[in-house]
Computed example of a mutant assay.
Amino acid sequence: MTNEVTVPLLPCASIDDIVAFYEVLGFHTTVKQRKPNPYVALQREDLHLHFFEIAGFDPEQSYGSCVVLTTDIEELHRAFAGGMRAAYGKVLVSGMPRMTRPRARKNSDGLGGFSVIDPGGNWIRVFQNAARTSTPTTMPAGRLAKALANAVVQSDSRGDAQQAVRIIDSALARPQADDDPAAQVEVLVYRAELAMVLQDQETATEMLDRAARVVLSADETVRAAPSFETAADLAAALR
């Protein structure tokens, strides 16, 4: 048989909050019931997510998670980000719900990925489908890039922003003459994102200011463009 479909069933405190959030991301409701148990089924093209409500459920303590494989993580992230901007005036980068941006994952053979943390505390982990990818993935080289890769594993994969901060702060405290300026921008912007996750707006503002002051060549400016796009989203969230 080749037509099987697996659909994750995830917990939440309120299916109404879940519906409101996922509608922002372009999902629609296919099934919704209150009895005998609160339950909702959501769909966005071929992506199906189902949720059940638990009285007294604490999203902060949730272990709910699932993996979504797609052929184009950048396109899906842009669609989700566009929905957030239209609904909230910004991309949600802190609190719950929130969304990380696409980054290569050291613990997933360098495949790109991002996560949506929904109102139920569930981590929807979106990855590039390796089976549909013909170009081999290599992790960036260099001291700062390696520190960033380790920090991404801690925060974007494990949800440990504090450990990611320790890794990044250690790297930033030891600048070297041969550090790649584009990588420096990316690290500073990621440090700002971590600060937002930890509700530290002062540090987030400081890191964005530092990133804006990094001197870049024309080539480095092109390579740093995705980081500056993220910085713009963070700055909007700070306002």
Rank of each mutant, 00 (worst) to 15 (best):
L49G: 02
E53M: 07
M96T: 06
V24A: 10
V93D: 01
A79T: 15
I168C: 02
W123V: 04
F80A: 11
S227A: 10
G110I: 02
D58H: 15
K35L: 08
Q162H: 13
L49Y: 03
S227H: 13
D156W: 04
S62N: 07
P136Y: 03
P102E: 05
R143D: 05
D200F: 14
V40Q: 14
V126G: 05
G120E: 05
V214E: 01
R143L: 05
T6G: 08
L238S: 05
F127W: 03
A211W: 02
D58G: 10
A104L: 08
L76C: 06
F51C: 12
V7C: 04
A195W: 01
V24D: 03
K146R: 08
A225H: 15
Q184R: 06
D156Y: 04
M99A: 09
S170A: 13
S62T: 04
V40E: 11
V68M: 10
V40I: 08
T137N: 08
Y190K: 01
T70G: 03
S108Y: 09
V91A: 05
Y190A: 00
R210G: 03
R105V: 03
L216Y: 00
A151Q: 03
E53G: 07
G26H: 01
M196V: 07
G64V: 02
A171V: 13
R105L: 06
S62Q: 04
Y22T: 02
S14I: 02
E75K: 11
G82H: 04
A20W: 06
P136H: 00
V5C: 09
S115V: 13
A104E: 12
L92S: 07
A237Y: 10
S157D: 14
D46R: 07
N37H: 14
T70L: 07
I54D: 00
